[in-house]
């Protein structure tokens, strides 16, 4: 009762309309914020603090300021490992960005038209996504195996023996191949999201263009593509964030060391080896340096995301 009166009269006080609205929003946010703060943000940010410490184990206690950061960029061994991981991570991300998303767009475009068997293909394309990385890694390692794998048997069978390579054992091949395996698994995600975007385009618009004599190619680039820009943006940023933190597929197919010879070592495997597991076979973790690597990865990702947010907001303003 009194609440309603207060808001009607716009009296200054705790429960005027403005505060009441704020209170509503806070209530909407509270459950998510609490869980997130207690079980994720808190532990994570507390752990980033460890980048200022050194010592063995998971709770280093010796405060050294920014020495870990200085070491990471100046001590040859760290610098080499770190920049190697950064380069590999960029390549890994780029392969996903280009191959996964353009193939996804192609499949979505094919699957958005109506034809016999469409539902079968739609179901199929997402199937690998449901598999665990353990399964995906084991299967593709088996198929690419130089001794009895299908790929090399086929190549030998059609007379291309010189192409029957030890795929996962070559430094220049292992990373692209593992990235493509990951594309195989995750392609359903962009496909389905693009499909959602394409299905949203009005039929009349496409028909009109078709009647005007525009080719499929022109329709795609001139009408569909501009209209799915927002989806493209979300997919791009998800690809970026997911693959800059990629760990599982490398761990399953190339081990925590990113074999062969660190050629598949990503930022996340470097972090895991440094901060969590320790190098084989000594296995003594250096959590301070691990947290340093995680912090820098975080900074790279955060700048990417903020840039994206800024650009998409500017875009939105322009279109309005």
């Amino acid at each position: 009762m009194s609440q309603a009166n207060l808001s009607k009269n716009q009296k200054p006080g705790l429960l005027n309309t403005e505060n009441q609205r704020t209170l509503t929003w806070v209530l909407f946010l509270l459950p998510a914020l609490l869980v997130y703060l207690v079980f994720m943000a808190g532990p994570l940010f507390d752990s980033l603090r460890l980048s200022l410490y050194t010592g063995k184990g998971y709770n280093p206690t010796e405060f050294i300021g920014f020495q870990n950061y200085i070491d990471l960029f100046t001590v040859p061994l760290w610098r080499e490992k770190f920049f190697n991981a950064v380069t590999n991570t960029c390549i890994f991300f780029a392969i996903h960005m280009i191959v996964q998303n353009s193939l996804g767009l192609l499949f979505a475009n094919l699957l958005s038209s109506d034809f016999k068997g469409r539902n079968f293909f739609r179901t199929l394309i997402f199937t690998p996504t449901t598999l665990s990385v353990l399964v995906v890694g084991f299967l593709w390692t088996l198929i690419l195996n130089p001794n009895w794998g299908a790929v090399n048997q086929v190549l030998v069978g059609i007379g291309l023996e010189q192409w029957a390579l030890p795929w996962l054992g070559r430094e220049n091949l292992a990373l692209p191949i593992i990235a493509l395996t990951s594309v195989w698994q995750w392609i359903g995600m962009p496909t389905v999201m693009f499909l959602a975007g394409l299905t949203g385009i009005s039929e009349e618009l496409l028909e009109a263009a078709s009647i005007d004599g525009a080719s499929e190619w022109e329709i795609f680039w001139k009408i569909k593509f501009p209209l799915i820009q927002p989806v493209l943006g979300i997919i791009a940023i998800l690809t970026f964030v997911d693959n800059f933190n990629a760990f599982d597929v490398i761990y399953a197919m190339a081990g925590a060391k990113g074999e062969p010879a660190y050629s598949t070592d990503l930022l996340a495997t470097l972090f895991y080896r440094t901060g969590i597991a320790g190098e084989h076979p000594t296995g003594i973790p250096n959590m301070g340096m691990g947290a340093t690597i995680a912090t820098i990865t975080f900074i790279i990702l955060m700048s990417g995301v903020l840039l994206w947010l800024y650009l998409s907001r500017r875009n939105a303003d322009e279109t309005k």
Binding site: T141, N145, P166, R170
Partner: peptide
Amino acid sequence: LPAGFEATSYADAEQLFAQGK
């Protein structure tokens, strides 16, 4: 060593021997 030794894992090697290859 086997032709594709760079991509032959420990478990693969054990199998190559056990299968008489």
